[in-house]
């Protein structure tokens, strides 16, 4: 290879790491959905509506990016929904009840998530509890803890100045007043960019794929697979903490009863984005597209005044169709 090839080669691993066709397919579906809804209703393709779609993507998108890491290792995390809520609750305790400054609150949210991830990761990698079971247990434990800590009542962030700005404020709007992109969306892009970089460029990312590809071979290469796996769950947990910040900032409160169900939406976004549930394959770009498809669908159906119960049915069908398309693609390219 010569030096002239180095430049494109630098970007290539970020894009190549599996499922290119699926991403094209997912991206094409996204375009088709957007076009379809735009034709069906003049209210769909408006700046306000686009912004609200992006805003709606941000929480699910951040969760999905985090869980993508875990799914690539061949694992699963069912606790991310209630973990997100638990992080928001602990942040509320620190900010509202203890009166700590905003930045401490942000750090608390991320640290809480990381600790939760550490616990899940340890249960899975050291105690060898299957990920599905370990995180199912964590899901319930964290849900209960949130209710216990708050006494089942929401914690409001009225005393913390600027807390709602995290999600709903718009730094971008100061530059581009016509398109005031909410900060939550910027956070999503930032998180996605960093995780894509980690996956494509770093040792942690390489082991993430390697664990999903053949964990035993990695262990027999002298790699401390347990430690890396725990690190991956902790990282995903930290990202969950960021999602907790975003949702509580948008609601200006930590709602302890919220959260369950978010994990399934995030996993759906990951799968639509072409990441294989059996591990070893997946991309962050795909996950972003998957999260956008979910948000566009929900929003578009609402704009078209489709009843919510039918929205749920359509979403289910879309998930199945996406995975079926992936299966067909893989059968064709053995």
């Amino acid at each position: 290879m010569t030096g002239t090839e180095a430049q494109p080669a630098r970007l290539a691993p970020l894009l190549r790491a599996g499922g290119t066709h699926q991403k094209l397919l997912a991206f094409a579906s996204l375009i088709v959905l957007v076009l379809g809804f735009s034709l069906a209703s003049p209210r769909f393709f408006q700046v306000d509506n686009i912004l609200s779609i992006l805003q709606a993507t941000s929480v699910n998108g951040v969760l999905a990016v985090g869980v993508t890491l875990i799914i690539i290792t061949g694992g699963i995390d069912l606790s991310i929904g209630t973990m997100m809520t638990f992080c928001a609750v602990i942040t509320g305790v620190v900010l509202t009840w203890m009166g700590a400054p905003l930045l401490v609150g942000v750090a608390t949210a991320i640290a809480t998530g990381a600790v939760c991830g550490l616990v899940s990761g340890t249960l899975i990698a050291k105690a060898r509890i299957p990920p599905f079971i370990a995180t199912l247990g964590m899901m319930l434990v964290l849900k209960g803890l949130s209710l216990i800590v708050t006494g089942t009542r929401p914690i409001y962030f009225n005393d913390t100045e600027g807390y709602t700005e995290i999600s709903t404020g718009s730094l971008a709007g100061k530059v581009l007043p016509q398109f005031p992109l909410p900060n939550g969306v910027l956070v999503l892009f930032l998180v996605a960019g960093i995780v894509a970089w980690i996956l494509g460029r770093t040792v942690l990312g390489r082991y993430t794929f390697a664990l999903g590809s053949n964990e035993e071979a990695v262990r027999l290469s002298g790699v401390d697979t347990a430690a890396w796996k725990i690190a991956i769950y902790a990282l995903a947990g930290g990202i969950c903490g960021i999602a907790g910040l975003l949702i509580s900032s948008r609601l200006n409160s930590a709602q302890p009863a919220l959260g369950q169900g978010y994990e399934l939406e995030a996993i759906a976004a990951v799968v639509i984005g072409g990441t294989s549930l059996s591990g070893g394959r997946g991309t962050i770009l795909g996950t972003l597209i998957g999260a956008l498809i979910m948000a566009v669908l929900t929003n578009g159906l609402r704009v078209l005044s489709v009843a919510p119960e039918w929205q749920t049915v359509v979403t289910g069908i879309i998930i199945i169709t996406a995975v079926y398309a992936d299966q067909i693609r893989r059968r064709g390219s053995v």
Binding site: R206, E216, L220, S221, G280
Partner: peptide, 16 residues
């Protein structure tokens, strides 16, 4: 089963 990550490339396996 124990030596390789089959879905990964030669480069990644050599470096494992």
């Amino acid at each position: 089963q124990f030596g390789l990550a089959p879905g990964m490339d030669v480069r990644a396996n050599v470096a494992m």
